[in-house]
């Protein structure tokens, strides 16, 4: 359940954002979650509801924005969508690929009333 640790970190970041921006209630959190991270979104949603209790975001909705995995082929320079770390390049079939997106775990923004 590393999702609990991630949500504890999220609570800390939200507290800081609230202090910096003089917020009293956070109503929505927009979170980028890459398709290639080892994060289970249902576990994250559950952990969010637990970890935000008695915080500025206790009533907040968690809006998860999935980020598609993308890879760049080091052999032919092709960039392509990839659901795994091991998708060979569809153009030259090389396994020498580099992940360029899909590993995000980023609070993009929050909404406050």
């Amino acid at each position: 359940m590393h999702e609990i640790s991630l949500c504890q970190n999220m609570r800390h970041i939200l507290d800081e954002a609230a202090q910096e921006n003089d917020l009293t209630v956070i109503s929505k959190v927009h979170l980028l979650v890459g398709d290639l991270t080892c994060v289970e979104t249902s576990a994250l949603e559950f952990a969010f509801s637990v970890c935000m209790k008695e915080s500025i975001a206790q009533e907040a909705e968690l809006h998860i924005i999935p980020v598609e995995g993308k890879a760049l082929c080091n052999q032919c320079g092709n960039s392509f969508a990839s659901k795994h770390f091991f998708t060979p390049c569809p153009r030259c079939e090389s396994n020498e690929i580099q992940i360029i997106s899909g590993e995000e775990l980023t609070i993009q923004s929050v909404e406050a009333h």
Partner: peptide, 21 residues
């Protein structure tokens, strides 16, 4: 980056959950 709407106030945060670690 920080702006008001009729019913809410949107604040850009752009922070990685693993930043502290």
């Amino acid at each position: 980056t920080t702006h008001n709407h009729d019913d809410h106030h949107l604040i850009q945060v752009e922070k990685d959950l693993l930043e502290k670690n």
